[in-house]
Design a protein around this nucleic acid. Structure first.
Lengths: 193, 193
DNA sequence: GCTCTAGTAGAGCGATCACTCTAGCCCCGG
DNA sequence: CCGGGGCTAGAGTGATCGCTCTACTAGAGC
């Protein structure tokens, strides 16, 4: 078995979907990259490409949520933490040649009007991200509705930053967003000096 | 000729790329929807799918820039205008069943790591949007660097809003972003009361 | 009337797509 | 020693992909 054929398939699928999108990723290529026999794919995922994609999205979405949470928890000051998160995203972009960004966004835009089951999966992932962030901001004494607005701003800006920075192959947009979003969080803090 | 086979091809291509992405759009389907003979496609676009996509992206990108500029110019107060732009985007999403959003973003994410010529086209379009918005904000007396930051925030939030709202099929994220971004612009105004 | 070009029209190319099918391997309980 | 399920393994399916090719038509210039 060795590290699990199923896990290798999910990982390779997540990477392929992140970089080439859903329609642009071939199942053959995914099996080759995960060194899995083609037949195993349909053994583990009888639902085919859609089921594999759903699993890959959920796996990558949970992993990314953990990553962001870790960065945010690294700093006691929430304003600094928000800035750090955008800086970390910018650094990852540069380090991977602008290939590794959000593992969900590309697929989410592709399937939003063409594949209802996958659209629902992406919606659940984004909602779980927003819930986590809303709780994080609310924990700083920010009112729930305001905390939710900031969570939406955080995720939307991060995703927009990935889009602009990947297209331009420059981290400047992501860095600028880090400053602006951090300021917005600062302004929403109850006892901001 | 009748309204131009070439124009119909570009329009149909832009719509298809917006809703289904680049890899998910077939040339056959585009020719059918534009009622153009398949041979004409390669007569007008000898470069094939890439050349057609480049033209469609540029056409749609210029049109969308005009649309946003029109909404922004409709209100003399820039803060209100920014809010109106997000409200208009939310309204369009609802009216089209969350199908018509940004004509560039989906393709931009798809091609960012897989198709260098198209990546450059999307970069140029985003940069032209940012230039226009930066000038608009600078015209309100905001310092150039700050105006650029706000332009990046505006575009990133709009794109992020499209992503979140399309995935969730709810306009709440887009509306929340309208409030937050308008506030950020308000705060950056030189003589804000 | 003639040619020449722009554009129409679509059959057909090899390649690749998602997916199905059969066959065989390995290991475990009996 | 045997049988059966979990998994490997890949050939083969029809459909569709982007693209090429040839043939044809309409109108302008001489």
């Amino acid at each position: 078995m060795a590290v699990g054929t199923r896990e290798r398939l999910v990982e390779a699928a997540a990477t392929s979907f992140m970089r080439q999108g859903y329609a642009g990723s071939g199942l053959k290529q995914i099996t080759v990259e995960s060194r899995a026999p083609f037949g195993s794919l349909y053994h583990f995922f009888p639902g085919g490409k859609v089921e594999l994609a759903a699993e890959a999205l959920r796996w990558a979405g949970a992993g990314y949520a953990q990553l962001v949470a870790a960065v945010l928890d690294a700093s006691p000051d929430v304003v600094t933490a928000v800035g750090d998160a955008f800086a970390a995203a910018a650094h990852t972009l540069e380090a991977t040649g602008y290939a590794d960004a959000c593992p969900i966004a590309t697929v989410a835009l592709e399937v939003a009007s063409t594949n209802e089951p996958l659209r629902e999966v992406t919606a659940e992932i984004f909602e779980s991200w927003l819930d986590g962030l809303t709780a994080r901001f609310a924990g700083e004494g920010i009112a729930p509705e305001r905390a939710r607005e900031l969570a939406v701003l955080f995720v939307a800006a991060l995703e927009g930053g990935f889009l602009l920075s990947r297209a331009a192959r420059r981290v400047e947009p992501m860095e600028a967003l880090g400053r602006t979003v951090a300021e917005a969080v600062q302004a929403a803090l109850p006892a901001h000096a």
